[in-house]
Nucleic acid binder design. Structure first.
Lengths: 138, 138
DNA sequence: CCGGATCCGGGGCGATACTG
DNA sequence: CAGTATCGCCCCGGATCCGG
């Protein structure tokens, strides 16, 4: 999340090579801690809606603040729509847009890769750390 | 990233729901600023190698420090191999492993999505911000 | 019930300077 | 040429309080 706020920082030298890299911008979004989780949960409920508290229940560990922030980011990005029932207390519902659903498909690809290969990465980490330890000892 | 260093932080309540979420761990890796760029550049050169300075040249804006950190993370994750020619001055070469190449494939999917849809996201942002502005004015 | 406001800590990331 | 150490900024994200 390094270059999120669009306004506010003009680049020093005048050309943002970042704008040529939509992948960077996408990663800045789905890289935030709760975004991918929220998208996934909403996708599981699609095309139905979920209320705030229900979302919170399905995303273990998320705080109300961060869930709120995350959802509003998604709304701002056009990936989620927010529907408020003007009751008191209010009921707020969220659902994925089609754009959001298409993102979910792309994310599913990543998840598959992650499930298939994160164990290998963990293993590589272990090997690497063992080398560190042994090289420290002798 | 929030939960990178594997050792060092035991969860407060005893169960890390994060470990059930390899996607989170993957995003913690490819979400770092230069990782995906480095993987892409190395993939373009694959199965050949690239030297440190050459990588730096092909990744505009990266500092030597961050490139070094990024590459070592990739090595630790088993996505990249590092080969040193014991000359003076030393020559260090990097290339993707097969695991790294398979990650590149997954990333390519994300890139495609990003190229296809980031404009829509930008547009949604614009709309959203215009609403903000107009609701502020009246 | 929903979520905004504020305070605060941690860590990614950059600039600079130094080593081999 | 390649890499590390130090310093500092910035901002994500958590805790808490408050408002509608």
């Amino acid at each position: 999340m390094t270059t999120r706020s669009a306004h506010a920082k003009t680049p020093v030298r005048g050309d943002l090579f970042d704008s040529q890299c939509p992948t960077r911008q996408l990663l800045d979004r789905i890289g935030t801690k709760w975004t991918s989780m929220a998208v996934k949960v909403l996708a599981q409920a699609a095309p139905g809606e979920l209320r705030f508290a229900e979302l919170r229940r399905r995303i273990p560990g998320v705080s109300q603040k961060m869930l709120s922030v995350t959802l509003h980011s998604l709304v701002r990005d056009g990936l989620v729509v927010r529907r408020v029932e003007p009751t008191v207390p209010p009921r707020v519902h969220y659902r994925l847009t089609e754009l959001g659903s298409s993102l979910e498909l792309a994310l599913a690809g990543l998840r598959t890769w992650a499930e298939d290969h994160m164990a290998e990465i963990d293993h590589a980490n272990t090997i690497h750390d063992e080398r560190d330890a042994s090289s420290a000892t002798g």
